[in-house]
Simulated scan of single mutants.
Amino acid sequence: MRAILERLVAFDTVSSKPNMALMRYVKEVLESAGIAPLLIPDADGTKANLFASIGPVGAGVMLSGHTDVVPVEGQAWTYPPFALTKAEGRLYGRGTADMKGFVACAVAAMLAASKRPLKVPLHLALSYDEEIGCMGVRSLIDMLEAAPQRPRMCIVGEPTGMQVATGHKGKVALRATCVGREGHSALAPMALNALHLAADFVGAVRGLQADVVATGLRDGDYDVPYTTLHVGKLNGGVQVNIVPNLAVLDFEIRSLAGDDPETLIARLRWAAEEIVAPLRAAFPEAEIRVERLWDYPGLGTSSDAGVVTFVKGLTGANGTIKVAFGTEGGLFDTRLGIPTVICGPGSMAQGHKPDEYVSVEQLGRCEAMLAALIDRLEAGF
């Protein structure tokens, strides 16, 4: 596992870059054990998903992980981000926690399983572009959707401290395009400032968030127990003496399972119309256009589901948690009907930061869970 992780970390698979070299490495490692992986390339052949199975034909258990990582630019790293460094019981490097540590454990588990007479198959699903909206895995899901059999259950190895997580919020990424009218800043009242429209729309987003906090659904299993709205990016203007005619802001909704994001989006579109409607007599072009960019569903596996009981038995866990971050698990559950939990080594508190790390102890616990899984698959579940 350690040797595999060292190789995985050395591949710079930031989402904006190819991951094909990493996938070919994993493919070669699996082929050396007699496993025949399938690569599912993207349109230009620079990125790919990977799917592999060991054991008899059948439903089985799927281990799921993504191979892309977030950028390191602008971060003050003490250790080299794309080289594995061990120090004080920790393994440092970009992606060690999120989530190449689990991927290395899963690949090593496939190698170990290839030497065992499994009665139930073990599947491995590796994806790309998870960090930019769970985009790459969708072609792998299309493949599984058309397959004669789908995995019986799935373990997504995002970092949970090896606790069994049953849920996360869904996410919708949106864009509001604000159209005004340009003009000289000396005559600013005769123009329509698109940035001012954007500021008013930000106020509407914040007002809706306050209403959700006051009156919306709550789920105490989350650190933030309600649906959240967040503006993450605002662009507009050329220079200070020009009233800008265009401003674009990107925002998101992270929703609880019981909240309908479409209802919230409709309320924001209504608020946008309220902002611009009084202005159209003087500025017919005035507009705030709200559009969806991408989304992924939440995960809400019942705490008494078979997959939860099964994975708790592998880890020795007594309870379950829910996680603040999104995963591909909601897509496996919603699109394919595969019961899914999240359980992997490390903590997301170390993810996306300089000097990202996973502890040797956490990797050991993950290896123990996967060894117990292989024993169960050999015994017939």
Score class of each variant (00 low, 15 high):
Met1Tyr: 07
Arg2Phe: 13
Ile4Cys: 10
Glu6Val: 02
Leu8Arg: 11
Ala10Arg: 13
Thr13Cys: 07
Ser15His: 08
Ser16Asn: 01
Met20Ser: 12
Tyr25His: 15
Lys27Ala: 15
Ala33Glu: 15
Ala43Tyr: 00
Phe51Ser: 06
Ala52Tyr: 08
Ile54Gly: 01
Pro56His: 06
Ser64His: 13
Val72Asn: 03
Glu73Asn: 05
Gly74Met: 02
Tyr79Ala: 03
Pro81Asn: 12
Leu84Ile: 07
Arg90Ser: 12
Gly93Ser: 10
Arg94Trp: 07
Cys105Phe: 01
Ala106Lys: 01
Ala108Met: 05
Ala109Val: 10
Met110His: 11
Leu111Phe: 01
Ala112Ser: 15
Ala113Thr: 14
Lys115Cys: 07
Pro117Trp: 06
Leu122Pro: 02
Leu122Tyr: 07
Leu122Lys: 08
Ser127Leu: 04
Glu131Ala: 07
Glu131Asn: 10
Glu145Ala: 15
Glu145Gln: 14
Gln149Phe: 10
Arg150Cys: 02
Cys154Ala: 15
Val164Glu: 02
Thr166Trp: 03
Arg175Trp: 00
Cys178Pro: 02
Val179Asn: 05
Ser185Arg: 07
Ser185Leu: 04
Leu187Asn: 13
Ala188Glu: 15
Asn193Lys: 01
Ala194Val: 10
Ala194Ile: 12
Ala198Ile: 10
Asp200Ile: 04
Arg206His: 09
Gly207Asn: 11
Ala210Tyr: 02
Thr215Gly: 04
Arg218Val: 14
Tyr222Ser: 08
Asp223Val: 14
Tyr226Met: 03
Tyr226Thr: 04
Thr227Pro: 03
Thr227Lys: 03
Thr228Asn: 09
Val231Ser: 08
Lys233Asn: 13
Leu234His: 05
Gly236Thr: 09
Gly237Arg: 04
Gln239Arg: 09
Asn241Thr: 06
Asn241Gly: 04
Val243Phe: 00
Pro244Cys: 07
Leu249Tyr: 01
Leu249Pro: 00
Asp250Pro: 00
Glu252Val: 01
Ile253Ser: 05
Ile253Val: 14
Ile253Ala: 04
Arg254Gly: 04
Arg254Asp: 04
Ser255Arg: 04
Gly258Tyr: 03
Asp259Leu: 03
Arg267Val: 00
Leu268Ser: 01
Trp270Ile: 00
Ala271Tyr: 00
Ile275Pro: 00
Arg280Ala: 12
Arg280Asp: 10
Arg280Thr: 13
Pro284Val: 10
Pro284Ala: 12
Glu285Gln: 15
Ile288Glu: 03
Val290Trp: 02
Glu291Cys: 03
Arg292Glu: 15
Trp294His: 14
Trp294Met: 12
Pro297Glu: 12
Gly298Phe: 06
Leu299Thr: 12
Gly300His: 13
Ser302Gln: 13
Ser302Met: 06
Ala305Asp: 14
Val308Asn: 06
Phe310Arg: 03
Thr315Pro: 06
Val323Tyr: 09
Thr327Gln: 07
Gly329Leu: 05
Gly329Ile: 09
Thr334Asp: 14
Arg335Thr: 12
Cys343Val: 10
Ser347Gln: 11
Gln350Asn: 15
Gly351Ile: 05
His352Ser: 09
Glu356Gln: 08
Ser359Asp: 06
Leu363Tyr: 03
Cys366Gly: 13
Ile374Ser: 05
Asp375Cys: 05
Glu378Gly: 05
Gly380Trp: 06
